[in-house]
Amino acid sequence: MGKIKSFVYVFILVTATLVSCKKEITIKSEVQSAQTNPLPSWNDGPVKTAIMDFVAKVSTEGSPDYVAPEDRIATFDNDGTLWCEKPLVQELFVFYLVKKEAEKKPELKEKQPYKAILENDTAYLKTLHQEDLVKLVVSTHTGMSAEAFATEAATFFANAKTPSGMPVAKIVYQPQLELLEYLRNNGFKTYICSGGTTDFIRAISQQYYGIPPEQVIGTQFKSEYADTTGVNDVMRLPGLASFNDKQEKPVNIWQHIGKRPILACGNEGGGGDIYMLRFSQGGNKPSLQLIINHDDEAREAYYQEKDNKSLNWAAKYKWQVISIKNDWKTVYPSK
């Protein structure tokens, strides 16, 4: 009987050890995989190689191209670069605010553009010009405190979906999430530099991208501090202080960070990011410029610039063009 007990004890001990070893091997395998292939959603090719070579040379001490951690700044556009921009999520937020305002003030339901949005926001979205969008953004995003706006944005994102029914949280680009993490793991500080409004993006920057709110640069409204009865907050005023697009992006990067990014990533679509990429090339440190080409009509919204300016600049200044069709194994997160 004692021999049986001893055998059972040894069997349990060996089994537990094997299970433990298997778990340890699995963990080590996952760690090694993450180290050897930190960008699993990227296809092997010139772009992926260029990214990894650049990160290695600027983060390896002793390398002639070594850049100190405090200068490893990376800036990313948001719409069309970190998440899908067809449709613009900020447009969906505008419609959300319009509908809420119309509920409070029924007389607005018969006025334009409220009437058109309430009747068919998807149809109105297709006809919306940038100038009209800016006017709507200004009218719906102001006249409230900073805290009140933050609450509205958080409420919107809690249940936000695209017209196709996809949760907004699912339209982020998986390869870009990997790239952001890879950069941070190698001593980079990652920033968002977007034409979207700062406080809107701050509502999800940490949750979606691991980027804290203070590292978001966006379009800014005029504002003032108010300390009156029942109010002690920054009030959002009707009027733009800075529209963070095109040539304004380098200006705001410098004002916000005080340094040039050594890596800048944007997308073709309206020429809004090319000056940020050029700005990152103007310093005395090694730099890398990435621009996304929306060339995959099967998995993502396909669109190209009529004048091809962004891709022409990419060829002229030797930027890396990320082809969604060819460089990304997957576009959106699987979970």
Rank of each mutant, 00 (worst) to 15 (best):
I4W: 14
P261A: 00
S334C: 05
I171M: 04
V251R: 10
T155W: 02
L237N: 11
T36R: 12
T198Q: 14
P163D: 06
N244Q: 09
D199T: 15
E70H: 05
G230S: 12
N284G: 14
K104R: 13
E152W: 03
I217V: 06
F95H: 03
V321R: 12
K335D: 12
N186W: 02
N186R: 10
Y332M: 07
V168M: 10
P333D: 02
R236S: 04
K109F: 04
K189H: 05
V331W: 00
D307I: 13
I324H: 08
Q320A: 03
G270Q: 01
A158W: 00
I274P: 04
S164D: 13
W328K: 00
K109G: 00
W313V: 11
S59I: 07
K57V: 09
T127E: 15
R202M: 13
A298E: 11
H256V: 03
G271D: 04
G62S: 10
C21M: 08
T17P: 03
Y9K: 15
K318A: 06
Q207N: 13
V31Q: 05
A68G: 02
T190Q: 06
F7C: 12
G271P: 02
I201E: 02
V55S: 08
M52N: 10
P213Y: 11
I262L: 07
E30W: 07
T127W: 07
S205W: 05
N326P: 14
T190L: 02
S41N: 05
E248H: 09
K329N: 09
A226C: 13
S41M: 01
L108C: 01
Y332W: 11
T81W: 00
I324R: 14
K3I: 15
E297A: 11
K325N: 10
G196N: 15
E101G: 04
F279E: 06
M166H: 09
T330S: 05
